[in-house]
Structures are given as C-alpha cells and as structure tokens.
Design a protein around this nucleic acid. Structure first.
Lengths: 212, 212
DNA sequence: GTCGGGTTCGACCCATGGGTCAATAAAACG
DNA sequence: CGTTTTATTGACCCATGGGTCGAACCCGAC
C-alpha cells in the first residue's frame, strides 16, 4: 500500500515554484487518469486518488477546482495527443491516402494505450459537466472527421477501397478504442507489435490491393 | 414528459397474477437497460427509471432487490441472447469456419443493437457487485472464446487467414461493441444493412480469398 | 359485503462522497 | 529571526440517492 517514498509525498527534485506546481498537477492527472480508467470514474473517490499520492483530499482542491475538472483535463490531454501531435500529420496530398491512414492508426494506437488516451475512451463523456462535455465531444468529432477524411482521400486516389467510408471509420475506431479493455503492456507484446497488427488488420480490410 | 397512458401506469392487457408479475419485471428491465445505456449506470437514479414507468421507487423494490440486480439481469439477458439463442449456432464441423464466423457476427450485431446487448457493452462491469460481476465476466469470457474458436477453426480448414486469432477476435469485438455508440435505428440504415457492412468489413480482413 | 393476499406508495433513514474552511506547517524573503 | 506567501490538512457541511417500512389500495374469493 505504501508508495515508494512514504515521507516526501510527491518525491520529485526541487524546482522553482511554478514548475513545481505544474509538475504536481501533471502527477495528479496521470494518477487520476489511471485510476479512473481502472476502476471507473464513479467508482473512484477523490480520497482514492489522494491516497495513491500520499496526500489529502483538500490538497487536490489546491490544484483543481473539482473532480469533474480533473477528468476533463485528462480527456483534453488525450485528445490533444492526436490533434496537436509534436510532429504534425503529413498534409493531405503530400502522400497517398493509404500512407496517411497508416500514420493515423499508428498515432491513434499510441494515444489509446497512454494513460490519458485510455481514460478518454474508457470513461464516457456522461460524467462531465455540460460545458466541458461539449468541448470533449467537439474534440472527438474532430478526430472522427480526420479519419473519415483520410479514408475518403484514399478512396479518391485509389489506394483504398471501401463501400462506406463513414461506417468504416466507425468500425476502425471501435477496434482501436476497445484495445485498452484487453491489452496490458506487461511485456508479452510491445506497443509497436500491437500497432502493427492492428494496421495490417485494417489494411487488409480497406486497402485496394491485397497484402497479407 | 407524460407517457401515453397517464392513468394506467403499466398499460398491458390483464393476465393472471404470475404472468402479470413477470411481464412487469420485463418492462422494468427494458426501461432500465435503455436508461442505463443512454445516461450511464451512475447517472441513472432509480427515481429516473420509476418516473419513466409512471411508478414510484418502492415499487421497483417489489420486483427487484437492488439497483445492482436490475443491471445484472440486463447483462444476463444480453449474454444469453448470444449463448442460448433460440436456434443454436451450427456445430463446429457442420460447415466451414468462415460460414460459422458470418453467422456469429450476424447474431452478435443483432444482440448488440438490442436494449440488453447495448446495455451489456455500454455499462462496464465495475458497477456490479463482486458475485454478479464474476458471473457476467464469465459469460463474456465464454462469448470471447466462441469467436476465438470459430476463427481458429476457419484458419484450420483454410477458409480464414489471420496471423493471431486471439488478437483478431479482439479487434472484431471492438468494432462490434462500439456500434451502440454511433448507430441509432432511426430508419436511415436497417440493422440488416449494418450487419452486412460489418460482415464484409471483417471478411475482407480475415477471409482467405478476397471478395469485395 | 369483508376478508386476505398481492401491489403500490409517501415518508423516512442514513452512508457516501464531493466540496469548503480555518488553522497549521513549510518555504521564501528581508 | 520575524513576516509574508505558498502548501497542506483535519474537521466539518450537506446534497444525493440507494434502500426500508408501514400504511393504504386494489381485486378476486367466499
């Protein structure tokens, strides 16, 4: 039960005040994301999160204004991992739709196995307050249309082939969003391997020319 | 807000006592399943369900012993829709693995768009009490291995082809379990059409010989 | 009728858990 | 060293919602 450092609750190196603050916020978010994903949002109490960090509940309120906000930040980070990746997606037209699809899938899988991505797809948006909820839904919608557009592009340039791009996108999202429910990074299979398998599965389904 | 029959809350024809009881139980379950799926388990209060039925909360307790039991029954019905279908799955060996796969997918999609099936895949098992939870997980495990076995069979008889049947099964379940999150039977697309699209998507990915 | 069981509900109980506050401890500052 | 600012917490508040209970109600049977 006791974490690695029983005395120094947070246990990071000393930095200046503001950095320290931001750093602790991040730690809270990671922990919360993990706990929300594992036990579910409503099954997780703020005391649970606090205990995992060896701090007290009111301290959480020093960094966040509500349980809801914590969840929202987790979702936001998950979404941004896709929409504002450090290296941007190759622009439409710069390569084939099929290549862009592969790149998108690789990114999305990487996102979805991360704490925040997992939290995004495991906890529904129901829990969020109306305003935050709207923002998250908007973000997801954006990601949805990214994939849809890529598929459409691939159909256009002849590298992909499927009857209904919109529905196909949903099937693909389903396959990927389900990953956190069964995949656990316990060494038996690397993320790269997982990602590769998913890509070949999808490619067999939608690529124009067959390739095992 | 007011339902069709403001006076007679339940609104079915009169039957004998026991049938009436069973019938009302079923109505409660359907309503609960729908509400749980739409708003989420924790966002749904027993009063919500009661109001939707024009009855009071204590009446629910005349038919069920807890909120948890209601959810469990919903899950149970969802699972049984697959495991104990009226017409049993064709036995292994009676036809090709590929044919059995198609049949399984058709069944599963039909299940997943039904109220209970939707509830099963939308609400996590976290909400359930340990005992019921175990039973549900056991049921899901059984369904999982059904699909896995079918795929394996297909690989064995040469009608299917995929590198990792276990993982492939998970991708397929993901694609199907995600359906309730975007598909709504509002007339624009029939369940049969949906089912057919899903099947061709999956078949392109795992069938040995290509067929658009 | 009126009796008796099946059915329904208003009113209540109470544990849970999100959220607050005033008081402390720990740094930073001079 | 005081003093101010930042960080942390024990103790508390209170709305919510699952669950209970006894009274009332309905309805068929004698």
């Amino acid at each position: 039960m006791a974490k690695s450092t029983p005395k120094r609750a947070w246990g990071e190196a000393i930095q200046n005040r503001d950095e320290q603050y931001e750093l602790k916020r991040q730690v809270v978010l990671r922990t919360a994301a993990r706990t929300y994903s594992q036990r579910g949002f409503y099954e997780t109490t703020l005391v649970d999160i606090a205990e995992e960090l060896n701090i007290s509940k009111p301290t959480l309120y020093y960094y966040f204004k509500s349980k809801d906000e914590i969840l929202f930040e987790c979702h936001r980070l998950g979404i941004e991992a896709i929409t504002d990746g450090e290296t941007p997606m190759p622009a439409a037209g710069s390569c084939t739709g099929r290549e862009r699809l592969e790149e998108f899938l690789r990114r999305y899988v990487r996102m979805v196995v991360d704490d925040f991505g997992t939290c995004l797809v495991m906890t529904g948006t129901n829990a969020l307050e109306p305003e935050n909820r709207g923002r998250v839904i908007e973000g997801r919608r954006k990601i949805d249309s990214m994939l849809r557009d890529i598929i459409q592009e691939g159909v256009g340039d002849g590298t992909l082939d499927c009857p209904d791009p919109k529905m196909t996108a949903m099937f693909i999202f389903g396959a990927m969003n389900w990953i956190p429910r069964w995949y656990h990074a316990d060494g038996t299979m690397s993320i790269e391997e997982l990602s590769q398998r998913l890509i070949s599965f999808v490619m067999r389904a939608v690529a124009k020319d067959r390739c095992g």
